[in-house]
Design a protein around this nucleic acid. Structure first.
Length: 587
RNA sequence: CGGGGUGUAGCGCAGCCUGGUCAGCGCGCCUGCCUUGGGCGCAGGAGGUCGGCGGUUCGAAUCCGCCCACCCCGACCA
């Protein structure tokens, strides 16, 4: 294991027979998403153990391409590259208290001196430590450090190939600013850099408001690549509002105008402790059930009410309660507070603070637990049978919810979290004592931002959004090579000679070329070419050679272009240049 | 961590229920011939502690127990 260094300039041509591209006809049994399957089949990666992969030549080249795009855009944005160690002393993490925040996800070990070391999943502590020691004046600010490095997480369940692994390549950047205004500028610069990275890598993307989780901070946004294989759900609206479902707000629903079909009463519901069971037993739709969750907010019990078909969003509850931390109450507390075993809690008669979700408040009537074993209440009317003083947005946004800005119904889709940028504020600088002297010689706490991008995810997400039944369809920006030469008959000296000349000419013209020089039949070569999916393919066969032509085909089109050998290099260079135009245009 | 499942040749799998010529198939690999515009054909060949340990039995890939690894669903997720 080693940290990636800035890669040396590598040879930009390669021969199939001399490198290692183990393609597979059959699909490995444990690959369930497209990118994983294709990365395995096209010979980009091989699994070593759960959540850890070897990158083979083709995969490595794509990864290096992605890495270099990121590096170039970071440099362009004025960030300065450093390389911090993967190994970090636990003491640093003790300073910020994040050993608990991360918990078992932290990869740790105890060395021979009984010191605990952490394989870093992120580097806020280490950079802040660096800065607190070596930056002391406003004259040195603002500054943004970044690194591209291997990170570690003891994932509960590694899956989706390279998308969720225990070890992954990541670019993380940290800005140190004298104040809010400066942070705003750094944040916007990074936002712009991320936009450019997506464009250059050929990734469709959407920027969404996000939850900052264990990294912290008030504002954060994610760069999402929309696709089915994504692990995150995102809510988007035509008005421009878009947010991770964990973060998205739901507009309050208009109250129903109806009266309950009967009188408030308690009914026996033996053994019905789940929404599904109660719904079936009482013949009441899940959306009419008022789910009553007992939480412990800084030790004191509170109740949170959401509809049976909704999920409570703990972060929203945390905000509303204003507590430092909340957690689902244990069974004993629930029994003490409600007087009933878990599964039969209800708001009627509860003597603790009750937080009601908007959607529950809008219900004309519903059913809920009776605070009594094996019993529920029906025809409960919010506001009549229990107080509605604390109505708030508490549930996780789902299908059918409406945009808080324009009240239109959200579209809910899935996405791969490719990048995440945070305005950290002073969370780390404050606790770790990172300060500077301003123009007046006064000591101030630094303001920080933090910006991450998953390099492996760039590659996987690109494949996930660009393939067909035959294989990968690389975008020029991160394709392992620009063009593949397919020589149809290696025993034919003319074909060989023409192929080699073209290979050299392309390389001389700065085109990255893979030459399939294997003594294999046309079918094998064509199928492999489609599988590995380089953007361009040149076919050289005896047939067309006689006419003095070769064939050029784009992987993303069915069209085959016959072109004179003499102009082949020029034509190919033109195609490559056109595909890479975006990045050149803005240089 | 809860639920489910799998482990037999490099890959994909059959065999296990019903113990005894079951160490088998397809792909891949090696040799020779052949073929060269879409995974070609013929012939020959190499390759497996049947995940590990222990138990039952005259005999275990097969039955039992423990362990390990991996996968799927869920919980979780900077």
């Amino acid at each position: 294991m080693s940290n990636p260094k800035p890669r040396d300039r590598r040879r930009d041509y390669m021969r199939w027979s001399r490198t290692f591209i183990p393609t597979m006809k059959e699909t490995p049994a444990d690959a369930d998403i497209t990118s994983h399957r294709l990365m395995l089949r096209a010979g980009l990666i091989r699994k070593v153990t759960a959540g850890a992969y070897t990158y083979l030549p083709l995969g490595l080249r794509a990864l290096a391409k992605a890495e270099n795009i990121v590096r170039e855009e970071m440099d362009r944005a004025g960030a300065v590259e450093i390389l911090m160690p993967a190994l970090q002393p636990e003491d640093l993490w003790a300073e910020t208290g994040r050993i608990e925040t991360f918990g078992p996800d932290l990869v740790r070990y105890i060395d021979r001196h009984e010191r605990t070391l952490i394989f870093g999943p992120t580097h806020e502590e280490v950079v802040t430590d660096l800065v607190r020691h070596h930056i002391s004046s406003y004259k040195q600010l603002p500054v943004t450090f970044y690194q591209i490095q291997t990170k570690f997480r003891d994932e509960v369940r590694p899956r989706f190939g390279v998308l969720r692994s225990k070890e992954f390549l990541m670019k993380d950047a940290y800005s140190f600013n004298p104040g809010e205004e400066s942070l705003e500028k750094s944040y916007r610069d990074m936002h712009e850099a991320y936009r450019r990275i997506c464009e250059r890598a050929g990734l469709p993307y959407v920027v969404v408001a996000a939850e900052s989780g264990a990294i912290g901070g008030d504002v954060s946004e994610e760069f999402m690549v929309p696709c089915e294989a994504g692990e995150d759900s995102i809510a988007t609206c035509d008005c421009g509002y878009s947010a991770n479902v964990e973060r998205a707000e739901a507009a309050a629903e208009t109250p129903e105008k109806a009266s309950p079909p009967g009188r408030l009463e308690v009914v026996e519901t033996p053994g019905c402790t789940t929404i599904q069971a109660v719904s079936g037993f009482l013949k009441v739709e899940p959306r009419r059930l008022i789910k009553t969750l007992i939480y412990s907010a800084d030790g004191a019990p509170v109740a949170a009410l959401v509809r049976g078909d909704h999920e409570l969003n703990e972060t929203k509850l945390l905000r509303v309660t204003g507590a430092g931390e909340i957690q689902l109450a244990d069974a004993a507390t629930i029994e003490r507070v409600t007087g009933a075993p878990v599964g039969f809690a209800g708001p009627v008669g509860l003597d603790i603070p009750i937080y009601v979700d908007h959607a529950v408040a809008a219900l004309a009537w519903g059913a809920t637990g009776a605070n009594k074993a094996d019993a529920h209440m029906v025809n409960v009317v919010p506001g009549r049978d229990f107080a509605l003083t604390e109505s708030a947005d508490l549930h996780t946004v789902t299908e059918g919810d409406r945009c808080p800005k324009c009240k239109e119904t959200f579209r809910i889709g899935r996405g791969i979290e490719m990048g995440h940028i945070f305005k950290l504020g002073r969370k780390y600088s404050e606790t770790m004592g990172a300060t500077f002297l301003d123009e007046n010689g006064k000591s101030k706490v630094l303001t920080m931002g933090c910006y991450g991008i998953g390099i492996n995810r760039i590659v996987a997400a690109m494949i996930e959004t660009s393939f067909d039944e035959k294989g990968i369809i690389w975008k020029m920006g991160i394709a392992p090579f620009h063009v593949e030469i397919v020589a149809l008959d290696m025993r034919n000296a003319d074909v060989r000679a023409a192929s080699e000349i073209l290979e050299r000419s392309l390389e001389a013209a700065g085109i990255e070329v893979l030459y399939d020089d294997r003594d294999a039949t046309a079918g094998v070569k064509f199928n492999d070419a489609d599988l590995i999916g380089l953007p361009l393919r040149v076919t050289i066969g005896a047939r067309s050679l006689k006419k003095g032509t070769v064939e050029l085909k784009r992987r993303d089109s069915e069209e085959v272009l016959s072109t004179a050998i003499e102009s082949a290099v020029e034509t190919i260079a033109g195609e490559v240049a056109r595909d890479l135009e975006w990045q050149r245009r803005e240089e």
